[in-house]
Design a protein around this nucleic acid. Sequence first.
DNA 1: GGGTCTCGTGAAAACGCTTCCACGGCGCTA
DNA 2: TAGCGCCGTGGAAGCGTTTTCACGAGACCC
Lengths: 342, 342
Amino acid sequence: MTATGARPTTPTLDEVAVLAGVSRATVSRVVNDSPRVSPEARRAVEEAVATLRYVPNRAARSLVTRRTDTIALVLSESNTQVFSDPFFASIVRGLSERLADTDLNLVLLAARGESEQEKIGRYVRQGHVDGVILMSLHSDDLLPDILAGAHVPVVLSGRPLDGRPVAYVDADNAGGAAAATRHLLSLGRRRIATITGPLDMVAGLDRLAGYRAALADAAPPGVPELVAEGDFTEAGGLRAMTRLLAEAPDLDAVFVASDPMAVGALQALRAAGRRVPEDVAVVGFDDAAVAATCDPPLTTVAQPLGEMTSLMVELLLDQIEAGERAVGTRVCGTTLVRRASA
Amino acid sequence: MTATGARPTTPTLDEVAVLAGVSRATVSRVVNDSPRVSPEARRAVEEAVATLRYVPNRAARSLVTRRTDTIALVLSESNTQVFSDPFFASIVRGLSERLADTDLNLVLLAARGESEQEKIGRYVRQGHVDGVILMSLHSDDLLPDILAGAHVPVVLSGRPLDGRPVAYVDADNAGGAAAATRHLLSLGRRRIATITGPLDMVAGLDRLAGYRAALADAAPPGVPELVAEGDFTEAGGLRAMTRLLAEAPDLDAVFVASDPMAVGALQALRAAGRRVPEDVAVVGFDDAAVAATCDPPLTTVAQPLGEMTSLMVELLLDQIEAGERAVGTRVCGTTLVRRASA
DNA sequence: GGGTCTCGTGAAAACGCTTCCACGGCGCTA
DNA sequence: TAGCGCCGTGGAAGCGTTTTCACGAGACCC
């Protein structure tokens, strides 16, 4: 362990001002792109900033502006598994793309368990972030309440289960699931099972509700419900499919509430010697990358992820701008993407 | 979009002081657990804090202490795919566990591409974090240089490719790979292939080097190298295995540089009708959860992830404590975990 | 019983920035 | 030519903390 020298002190606004021969106020104006600065002063300051490698101190700045220019994506999920869900990866990608040309920073906060939720609550209340995008809520999640008490703008990814008044962006999960199920019906399938997401998550519940609604509305009499609960993971899909095959060996189609689970289901079907789509038609949900590459390519329900992340950011920025929380909700339509599996 | 009221102003130290009937200094002392406060004063302050729901303002605090009590895990990788690597998930879990009983916060910063790397550099230079743990470095990564210029403590996850003096924690990748390869030799295999990681990453290179060293040192003459480059993903493993089977149909073993790739390789082998381990023995790397559950269960090289994350945090805290960057390096041993695949 | 220590406390000075306000100097208009 | 307004600028007042320093009150020693 060798020391490589003490940390040099970073330059301050004062030093820049002295070097540029102007006042601190003028330096601040230049740094913040205020229009009321003469070209000469601006040039002098910019030069000084460059030679000193000056960077404004964020703590000092946000002490007075009361803004931090960072927003948090908080992920509340006991299972680190979430990280591997392509849906989550897409959200992260979408957000950082959307934020790229703003001067906002994105930080990820993950909470597994109650103590970490509290910790995040404290982090937010201390004023580390201007706003929060909250993902992956189970019904017993404390974070919405914690954040409500933090008086900070919040946008939920996904409709809140308890109907509380809060801004959120969601896909039309029920509509998409219903469309998928109707598609299977239109293929002539009559023993249509579903593998659900976790039933303490709104996406899980809504997709199941869509499946049920479609069977109730559009199916000929006598088409039964066949439901197995999954957990949005590939392994869970495999397990659920295996269970379904044991319970209903004559099923001829399955609507799977997420693509990773559908990939697992495909494996179970292959292991059981069923051909897809000849013996069993499969529809997934999410249109993850894997849906196009698996064997057979997966018919699935696509959500407009880019649009959704944009909307979340906009709803959040609106609140931050206005300096108050607000509830604005957007529900985005889904599309059925037809591939080989159904 | 309905307003739900303006954000109430949060209480300050002053208000607490007034309510408790003491000075600001005393309140500060109580909040920071200073010993030199009388029990009565302490009680009065704690009461006031509770009734006012006071939380210290972080900007003000770090303006004077020059600490933020947050450290960043920065992930430099153009591919959002990384998120789904179980290795990454384990690191995140390990770090947040290790940090749980400190008052340090962990934020995740992801950089895809140059502009986001710059953005992270700015974020760090602005003083948002006390230290950085840097992951997933490709050889052309700018971040080490950017962060070096930010004068902030840094610990790398993985040996730096260019040998720069910087603190890092790494597994003995070469040693683990060599052990895996020797294990295959000891099984009597003589046509041993390898699927590597990306060869611009140190883990990819070192594991390949270990494989080569083992063949050179421990193999009877005439045992050839068979190398296919992968990318640490399942799909990449499948592709690489397919390629290997085409090039060397008579191979009887394969050392795969990560478990997700090994899972892909297993699929390719099954598709080609090879039995594992009878026809082809397979060894993976990482001992990810999937290694125990896939079919057949995977013999693999385990790294002491918990120990590694702890060491990273300690190395980082040492530097923060000392107020200067330092280079301390730790290399952790690996163990071969025997399961059914080899 | 006087002097020295310790201990709890408060006043006040930073920390580095933004922003309000006042003040000259300039170009207009009348 | 006098008056008005605007524009660029600097001084200075905060923003909410921590921390140094000084101070008074007891406790203790000889």
